[in-house]
């Protein structure tokens, strides 16, 4: 038994992010470090960034096939492969980070997530939250639903679908050409992440309006684990790995809030001309309605989708009442 305890498990993890991708790069490293220390060196995790494996969006397939044992990514990237993975990152008008963690760990979210991932020989765990993402940079003001008509905006995924329903034109632009395209009005708007990532792209110099978020209220990243690999680990190492992932995710959530706060303050001081705007109520109402209609379509098409959406909906209805008289009431008291 003494010998068996010495066995070292070497795991490989693929990230969707390139090298040094700010706060996104932290959870995998913290998790690997924690797992190694907590297991007294019995778990060793090697991390490859997208610069090494060159396939940011191949992480799902590579972990599934066992080319990598683990991945760090975001669930909604796999929507084209497995539509129901969409719901485990963040949803327009959905839960905040805190509410969503509540749903994952105590509201049945984890069970539903495994139900989606297990058929593909995968396990998925929360991997850190960015908090509310900004609504994006706009060249023109949005004062009414009509202003969304024909709006050419780089906004991928489901949020793009919601906007398209109101007459906007989601547009594909390679990241390398975003700056020139926005500067030259080839597109009218784009969404990226938030102050932490947007500042270095320089969008504040070429677009006057920075809109607050509606479409990604709490973007949760994910740890993917190859199920067979995980099951081969001794029970204690499985628990250590799970704990390490959970702590790393928690840590990124805090760090994101911290960094966004610092970056936003710096940005405001350095570029006082950036105008922060929120969509008017009319636009928000229309977006909500479009969102609800689309989700109803999803639910009608797939039983598991309906189960997930119902679960999120009923959890949100309950927990939001508390958020309202707690967080919201408290924040309102400052106005």
């Amino acid at each position: 038994p003494a010998q068996a305890a010495e066995k070292v498990y070497k795991l490989k993890l693929a990230e969707t992010w390139p090298t040094n991708f700010g706060v996104f790069s932290e959870p995998a490293r913290r998790m690997a470090d924690l797992a190694n220390k907590m297991s007294n060196g019995r778990i060793e995790i090697r991390i490859d960034t997208a610069n090494k494996h060159k396939s940011a969006f191949g992480v799902f397939d590579m972990v599934r096939a066992g080319q990598y044992d683990m991945g760090h990514s975001a669930s909604y990237y796999w929507k084209g492969k497995v539509p129901n993975t969409l719901y485990f990152t963040t949803m327009p008008f959905g839960m905040t980070a805190t509410e969503q963690y509540g749903w994952f760990y105590y509201g049945g979210g984890m069970e539903l997530m495994q139900k989606v991932y297990e058929p593909f020989n995968l396990l998925s765990f929360p991997g850190g939250n960015t908090g509310v993402q900004m609504g994006g940079w706009f060249q023109k003001e949005i004062n009414s639903v009509d202003d969304l008509q024909g709006l050419k905006m780089r906004i991928p995924g489901f949020a793009g679908e919601v906007l398209a329903k109101l007459g906007a034109n989601p547009t594909n632009i390679p990241p390398g050409e975003l700056y020139t395209s926005l500067e030259r009005n080839t597109i009218d708007a784009l969404e990226w992440v938030g102050p932490s990532m947007d500042l270095r792209m320089g969008f504040h110099k070429i677009a006057p309006y920075y809109y607050t978020g509606w479409h990604e209220p709490g973007t949760e990243l994910q740890f993917l684990v190859n199920k067979r690999t995980f099951e081969k680990l001794p029970g204690d190492l499985q628990e250590i790995l799970k704990a390490a992932m959970r702590v790393a995710a928690y840590d990124m959530t805090i760090k994101s809030h911290h960094e966004s706060g610092e970056n936003w303050a710096a940005m405001k001081a350095e570029f006082p001309n950036v105008q922060v705007k929120s969509f008017p109520d009319e636009v928000i109402r229309a977006l909500r309605q479009a969102n609800d209609e689309l989700l109803a379509e999803h639910a009608a098409q797939d039983e598991l989708a309906k189960e997930i959406l119902d679960s999120q909906d009923s959890y949100l209805k309950t927990v939001r009442q508390w958020t309202d008289i707690a967080d919201r009431a408290y924040l309102n008291s400052f106005e």
Partner: peptide, 10 residues
């Protein structure tokens, strides 16, 4: 610009 955190426009 991305790697070094410098705005692309600059």
């Amino acid at each position: 610009g991305d790697v070094m955190g410098i705005p692309v426009g600059d």
